[in-house]
Amino acid sequence: MTTGTHESDHGPRRRDASATREAILNSAIEAFTRLGYDGAGVREVAGGAGVTAMLVNRYFGSKEQLFAEAVDRSFAPRTVVSNDPSELSEQTATRLAARTAPDADNLDPFLLMLRSAANPRAAEIMRAAIEKHVGQHLAGILPGPEAALRGDLLLSLIAGVWLMRKVIATPALTGVDQGTLTRQLQDLMQVLVDAPQDQTTSNS
Rank of each mutant, 00 (worst) to 15 (best):
L111C: 01
R121A: 05
R115A: 03
A147E: 09
H133G: 11
L153W: 03
R127Y: 01
A128T: 11
D152K: 12
L138Q: 06
G140P: 04
S116E: 02
A147P: 07
L157C: 04
R150L: 10
N119E: 10
K132L: 06
V134R: 09
V134T: 02
P143K: 02
I125G: 04
L157E: 11
F110K: 04
M113N: 03
N119F: 09
L138W: 07
S116Q: 01
L153S: 10
I125F: 13
G140M: 00
L149N: 08
I130E: 04
L107D: 11
M113W: 11
L153F: 07
M126P: 09
S116V: 12
S116W: 08
L107N: 15
A148R: 04
G135C: 08
R150C: 05
G144C: 11
A122N: 09
A123P: 10
H133M: 11
L107A: 09
K132G: 02
H137Q: 13
L155Q: 02
E124W: 11
L155D: 03
L157A: 14
P109W: 04
P145E: 13
A128P: 12
L111A: 02
R127C: 00
M126W: 13
R150Y: 06
A118S: 08
L153I: 15
L155W: 04
L107M: 13
E131D: 11
A129V: 12
A117N: 08
P145G: 12
E131R: 09
A123C: 15
G144M: 08
